[in-house]
Amino acid sequence: GETEGALVTEAPKKVGSLSYSASGMTKAGVASASWTSTVLAGALPQLGVSFETSPLGADTEVTGPVALVLWAASTTEDMDIFATIRNIDPDGKDVFEQGQQGQPVPVAKGWLRASHRRQDPALSLPYRPYHAHVEREWLKAGEPVQVEVEIWPTSMVFKKGHRIRLDIQPRDGVGSAPYTHYCADYNTGTNTIFTGGGRASYLLLPVIPKK
């Protein structure tokens, strides 16, 4: 699918933003962006926003924990965040790995409901937010907040010419089966991701230097 933004090593100087709807459902009546709904309902429009690097100039190893730091807002009191890191080959196709049950999976995933963004400072690390989950801190419509999402650790060599892609979606993304989330109170409305300036969202990747 198409991407709306670029993954770059330096934040833009000016604040920008990208908005997307979190309200879509499929004709099958399940979460719009889930792998399962794609099987049930056929090809679906992409939900959320995606960011992608330029083609990599050399093989690039990413090994360790990953964190996504977002400045985000919603028109509603909460926001579901599903993050997926993908390995895209020169032909624009996903390079999948094999999951625990033999299913094709992307590089790594993470998810968080924005109202659970409060962290435990004693247990959190710069590269691994640890969320307290003791109370919900509701959003105020249109007011940006910082949300740190833990993405599961990975070890992957992205080949020269490949691209690293980040999807931010309101539902499960590509390669979620058999662990798709089904929740009766998925949040809806319009979500906004901010970029650059004093509200620079970023993806913290553990890139291993070449010897």
Rank of each mutant, 00 (worst) to 15 (best):
142 G>C: 05
85 I>M: 13
135 E>D: 13
59 D>M: 05
133 H>A: 08
100 Q>F: 08
176 S>K: 03
126 P>Q: 10
140 K>Y: 04
91 D>C: 01
151 I>F: 08
140 K>I: 07
113 R>D: 03
159 K>H: 12
102 G>S: 12
172 D>K: 04
144 P>C: 11
70 L>H: 02
51 F>S: 03
98 Q>G: 00
172 D>F: 01
69 V>E: 13
160 K>P: 01
92 G>R: 03
69 V>Y: 15
150 E>W: 15
167 D>R: 00
105 V>F: 06
65 P>R: 12
140 K>T: 14
152 W>I: 06
138 W>R: 13
91 D>T: 13
115 S>L: 06
56 L>R: 02
54 S>D: 15
150 E>V: 13
76 T>C: 02
76 T>P: 00
80 D>I: 03
108 A>Y: 08
65 P>Q: 11
104 P>R: 08
110 G>L: 00
121 P>K: 09
76 T>W: 10
122 A>G: 07
131 H>Y: 07
179 Y>L: 13
165 R>A: 11
82 F>D: 08
124 S>E: 07
83 A>Y: 07
63 T>I: 10
86 R>D: 11
112 L>M: 05
51 F>A: 12
73 A>K: 04
92 G>Y: 09
189 G>H: 05
152 W>T: 10
174 V>M: 09
75 T>S: 13
183 C>H: 14
169 Q>S: 13
109 K>Q: 14
165 R>D: 07
183 C>A: 12
124 S>H: 04
182 Y>M: 09
82 F>G: 01
111 W>D: 10
95 V>T: 13
60 T>V: 12
72 A>F: 04
75 T>K: 00
63 T>S: 15
85 I>Y: 03
150 E>K: 12
61 E>C: 03
63 T>V: 11
139 L>C: 02
48 G>F: 06
99 G>K: 05
60 T>Q: 12
55 P>H: 11
131 H>K: 04
44 L>K: 14
51 F>N: 01
77 E>Q: 11
131 H>T: 04
186 Y>F: 15
87 N>I: 00
85 I>C: 02
88 I>T: 00
192 T>E: 08
112 L>K: 01
99 G>F: 03
163 R>K: 15
173 G>S: 13
138 W>A: 14
101 Q>D: 09
56 L>P: 03
133 H>C: 03
98 Q>H: 07
117 R>Y: 06
185 D>R: 08
77 E>M: 06
179 Y>E: 13
79 M>C: 04
167 D>E: 08
110 G>W: 06
181 H>Y: 15
127 Y>L: 08
186 Y>E: 12
123 L>Y: 02
125 L>Y: 09
84 T>N: 06
66 V>A: 05
90 P>H: 09
160 K>A: 11
163 R>G: 06
124 S>C: 04
46 Q>S: 14
149 V>R: 01
167 D>M: 01
147 V>T: 08
140 K>M: 07
55 P>F: 12
176 S>V: 03
70 L>T: 04
190 T>Y: 01
69 V>S: 14
82 F>C: 02
173 G>M: 06
134 V>L: 15
122 A>F: 14
91 D>G: 07
166 L>E: 05
88 I>K: 00
106 P>E: 08
67 A>D: 09
147 V>N: 01
59 D>R: 07
149 V>C: 01
116 H>G: 03
179 Y>Q: 10
93 K>M: 09
143 E>S: 02
181 H>M: 13
116 H>N: 15
178 P>R: 05
65 P>Y: 12
143 E>N: 00
67 A>W: 11
116 H>V: 09
185 D>E: 10
